[in-house]
Amino acid sequence: MLAFETIVRPLHFLHLVAGLSSVASCVHLLTRLLSRRHDPRIRTHALVLGVAYLSTYLLGALIYPTFRVRVRAELLDRHYPWATGLFEIKEHAASIVLIPVLAIVVLSRVLDPRQDLDRRHVLLLRALTGIVLLVLIYNASAGWYLGTIRSV
C-alpha cells in the first residue's frame, strides 16, 4: 500500500476544489490590479489565492505517490510519454511559483498604491499575478486532461 492511497480520492477531489479556487481568485485579483481605481478587495483576493494555492500544492504532494505508481509508472510512462511530459511541467511549475504566490500575498498587504513610493512596486505585483495565473491555467488544463487518460 502506498502513502495516502486509501484516501486518495477524497484528497483528489479537494485538490480539484482548491485548484479551481486558486484560478478564480487569481483572475479576480488580476482584474482588480489592472483597474485604475484602488480596490481594497485586492487583499482579500490575494489571501484567498495564497490559502487556496498552498492547499492545492500540499494536497497534490499527498496524492503524488499514488499517481506516480498507479498512473504514471503503470500507464503514462509506457504508453503516453508525452502525457508524462505535460505532468512534469505542471509539477515543476507549481513549485517554481510557490514563492511568487507568497510574494503576492505579502505585497498586497504591505503596499498602498495611493502612496508614490509604493506605486512603483505595483507593477511587480501585477507581473507576478499574471505569471501565476498563466501557470494556474496551464496546471488546471493539464490536470484535467491527464484525468481523462487515467485518474488516481
Partner: peptide
C-alpha cells in the same frame, strides 16, 4: 519596510 520586503522577496524568488 516596503522596499526591504520587495528586495527580500525578490532574493527568495
Amino acid at each position: 519596510r516596503q522596499d526591504a520586503i520587495v528586495v527580500t522577496l525578490c532574493a527568495g524568488m
